[in-house]
Amino acid sequence: MIGFVELEFRIHDAHSLKDKRAVLQRTLTRVRQKFNLSAAETGHQDVWQLSNISLVTVSNSHQAAERELERAIKFLDTFPEWERVKTEYEWL
């Protein structure tokens, strides 16, 4: 089972692409180290205060893949620099 989720985040205190990249680098590095998944910025790359993050995991069951993605999303939600405004799941 392949689980894919696309998240859109609003970064409130970013006043430049440099500010946004600092937040993204810190958070994506930590989520990659902590969870068994791939993470990348996949949209809004030239917008200061918005970012699309995609997370992908592979597992032998739907439940295990969903559990790993949910844990990662909860972890990303703990960062005070941003707020999640959109979530879209896909299962393959």
Rank of each mutant, 00 (worst) to 15 (best):
S61A: 04
E68Y: 02
L76F: 07
N52L: 05
L28I: 03
P80E: 08
V56Y: 05
H62Q: 10
E90F: 13
P80G: 06
R32S: 08
F9K: 01
F79H: 08
R10E: 15
T42N: 03
A39N: 06
R30D: 00
M1H: 14
D77L: 12
N60P: 05
N60V: 03
R71M: 11
T87Q: 14
D13I: 06
L55C: 04
W48K: 05
E81N: 12
V5W: 03
L55F: 05
T78R: 12
T78E: 09
D19C: 03
E66T: 05
L17Y: 03
E6Y: 12
Q45G: 08
R67D: 08
A39E: 00
E81L: 07
R67Y: 06
E83G: 15
A22H: 10
V31D: 00
G43P: 07
R26T: 12
W82G: 02
V85M: 04
T27D: 11
Y89W: 13
K74E: 15
A72C: 08
D13H: 14
N52E: 04
V31F: 00
I2E: 08
D13K: 14
L50T: 03
F35V: 00
L92H: 05
Y89V: 10
L55Y: 05
Q33N: 15
Q49I: 07
L17C: 09
E83T: 15
P80S: 10
L17Q: 04
H15W: 09
T87P: 06
S61K: 04
S61D: 00
R84I: 14
F4D: 13
E68C: 09
G3C: 00
I2S: 05
V31T: 09
T42P: 04
E8Q: 13
S38N: 12
L69G: 02
R30I: 01
H15M: 09
S16E: 07
K86E: 12
E41T: 04
T57Q: 08
T27W: 02
A64Q: 06
Q63T: 12
R10H: 15
V58E: 00
K34R: 14
G43H: 03
E83S: 15
Q33G: 14
N52C: 07
Y89H: 15
T87V: 15
H44S: 11
N52I: 01
V85D: 01
E6H: 12
T29E: 05
E6G: 14
E81K: 10
R21I: 08
F35Y: 02
V23I: 13
R21V: 07
A40E: 09
A72S: 08
L7K: 03
F9C: 02
E70I: 10
S51T: 08
L76K: 09
T42I: 07
E88G: 11
A40Y: 10
L76P: 13
T57D: 06
V23D: 06
E83R: 15
E6M: 11
L69P: 01
N60T: 10
F79A: 09
K18M: 10
A22G: 12
Q49Y: 02
